[in-house]
């Protein structure tokens, strides 16, 4: 056990050299690398934190936006619903209006058709009644009825109101002949009776011309100059026609048409 001081000195130098070398090749690079890594990790952590905060902010804003969207969605839905309601009401109104128009047109058309039908019916019914009446009268117009007709004419002539009589008298004084028209030919006695009655009423000897007119079913028409007086069963027929029209109108508005027809027929026959 001895100490070689030269070796000691050499070892001191060696140790110091080793300290310098290790400082250069070990401690400094390693500590620097670790420090850099730590800084890097810190930086990354900070970045991650910032990114997370950003993401959280983003998430919060998205959440907010979503809520706003929900709200606006409600608004849009309700306005859309209102619009739809309005549109529906409008369409309903239009359809109702259109239906009204169509109904009116249909009613008008119906009324026209009814009118046409009624007039046709009227015409036909009138014609039929006239025909029937004509036939009946033609068949049963014997002397007795002609006599009754002439008698009635004479009575009516006698009970003529003063105005009419004055007009007839005035016409008779100017005209030369009076024309008497009947549905059927009159017997000579009947003609005489009428002529006499005329002469009585008008107090003149006017000539009487007897003519036949098929349209005069059961009546007598007296024409002197421009003045005409008529007594005819045709007015009964006119009244019948008017009542028939009334019955048809009532029938088209509801009620029992058959009874009305019966009533009309009864009235017509009376």
């Amino acid at each position: 056990m001895q100490i070689d001081w030269l070796t000691v000195a050499a070892q001191i130098v060696n140790f110091l050299v080793l300290v310098w070398l290790l400082q250069r090749f070990l401690y400094r690079p390693i500590t620097n690398a670790m420090r850099r890594r730590e800084e890097r990790i810190e930086e990354r952590l900070a970045e991650a934190k910032a990114a997370r905060e950003e993401a959280e902010e983003e998430a919060a804003s998205l959440k907010r936006k979503k809520a706003e969207l929900e709200e606006s969605k409600e608004g849009i839905l309700s306005s859309a619903r209102e619009e739809a309601d309005e549109l529906r009401e409008k369409l309903k109104g239009e359809i109702r209006k259109e239906m009204e128009e169509k109904r009116d047109a249909w009613r008008a058309h119906l009324a026209e058709e009814r009118e046409a039908f009624v007039s046709a019916l009227q015409r036909k019914a009138g014609q039929q009644i006239l025909d029937i009446t004509g036939h009946i009268l033609a068949e049963y117009a014997d002397m007795e009825i002609s006599e009754r007709l002439v008698a009635t004419f004479a009575d009516r002539l006698a009970s003529l109101n003063p105005d009419k009589r004055a007009k007839l008298t005035e016409a008779a004084s100017e005209a030369e002949t009076a024309v008497v028209e009947t549905g059927a030919a009159l017997t000579s006695s009947a003609k005489r009776r009428i002529t006499r009655a005329l002469h009585d009423v008008l107090s003149s000897d006017i000539d009487v011309d007897y003519r036949e007119d098929e349209e005069m079913v059961l009546g007598v028409r007296l024409t002197i100059g421009g003045v005409t007086a008529e007594w005819s069963a045709a007015r009964y027929l006119d009244r019948l026609r008017a009542e028939l029209d009334e019955a048809i109108d009532l029938g088209s508005h509801g009620g029992g048409p058959e009874q009305e027809h019966v009533a009309t027929a009864e009235r017509g026959s009376g």
Binding site: M1, D4, T7, V8, Q11, F15, L16
Partner: peptide, 11 residues
């Protein structure tokens, strides 16, 4: 070697 340990101790 005592020389080495002595050198280190002197350091």
């Amino acid at each position: 070697s005592l020389s080495t340990t002595a050198a280190l101790a002197i350091c």
